[in-house]
């Protein structure tokens, strides 16, 4: 089963955040709890943990992109 990974909304006011870095590459195995990517908001950089285990199948954005909250940024294949 494929799961969409969304840009988390870290606060009610957050409209966008900058994708600071990917900690995994396409094709990598990801375990639940692994840091999948980092995002930069007004205050800090947040290391976002994966909620899924599987293979990181697709990445739609690159480091440095400003992305809207809830936008789909990647797909993990959980099969």
């Amino acid at each position: 089963m494929k799961k969409n990974i969304q840009m988390p909304k870290l606060s009610e006011q957050m409209e966008t955040a900058v994708l600071a870095a990917w900690n995994k590459e396409t094709g990598d195995m990801v375990k639940k709890g692994d840091v999948l990517f980092e995002i930069e908001t007004e205050k800090v950089v947040s290391e976002v943990e994966s909620m899924e285990s599987g293979v990181l199948e697709e990445i739609f954005f690159e480091a440095g992109d400003e992305i809207k909250a809830d936008e789909i940024i990647a797909v993990i294949n959980c099969d």
Binding site: P8, T41, V44, V45, S46, E47, M51
Partner: peptide, 16 residues
Amino acid sequence: MEKKPAWLKVSYNKEA
């Protein structure tokens, strides 16, 4: 957005 120094890094777990 201003780049943050390396020590301003926190973890985020959506389920929690």
